[in-house]
Amino acid sequence: MLGKSADKVREGAGKAQEAYGRATDSYTDETQGAARKYASQASYAVKDAADCVRSQISSNPVGGLAVAAAVGVVFGYLLGRK
């Protein structure tokens, strides 16, 4: 949970830097702020998806095992082709 809150703080810092760049007409600050903001949003989304998958697997382990086996078969098929 600490990682998600840190991502929100980084997102806020990115928004602030982006706004500062716009106010001072600094393209570098605006670009770096936008990059920081979007990277934090992506990181938050990945962590949220991982938490969702983790909770689904813990509530239904047989379904999770079936999905993992299917993914393994697909990867095996794709990597085994010559």
Rank of each mutant, 00 (worst) to 15 (best):
K8A: 14
K82I: 02
D51G: 15
S58I: 01
Y77V: 07
A16H: 12
G64M: 07
S43Y: 08
R22W: 01
D51I: 02
G72M: 10
A70Q: 05
V9S: 12
G80N: 04
A19T: 05
E18F: 07
T31L: 02
G76L: 13
A50I: 03
Y77M: 02
A49K: 09
L65V: 10
S55L: 09
G33L: 01
K82C: 04
G64F: 08
K15Q: 12
Q32T: 00
A50P: 01
L79E: 03
N60Y: 11
G63A: 15
V67N: 08
K15Y: 06
G64Y: 06
A42P: 01
I57G: 01
G12Q: 10
K8L: 14
G80I: 04
K4Q: 05
Y20L: 04
V9F: 13
V53E: 11
R54P: 03
M1H: 10
T28D: 02
E11S: 08
R36L: 13
D25F: 09
Y20K: 02
V53M: 11
L78N: 13
S55E: 13
A70V: 05
Y27M: 08
G80F: 03
A6Y: 11
T31I: 00
Y20Q: 02
G12I: 04
V73P: 00
L79K: 13
S43W: 05
Q17N: 03
A49E: 09
S59K: 15
I57D: 11
V73C: 02
S26H: 03
A6G: 09
A45H: 11
Q41W: 05
F75M: 14
M1R: 08
V9Y: 13
A39W: 05
Y27E: 12
F75I: 15
C52S: 14
G80T: 03
Y44K: 05
C52Q: 13
L65R: 10
N60M: 10
N60F: 09
A39R: 14
S5N: 08
R81T: 14
A42T: 04
G76I: 05
A49H: 09
G33D: 02
Q56I: 07
D25C: 00
Y44M: 01
K82V: 06
Y27V: 12
V71D: 11
A35P: 01
M1W: 05
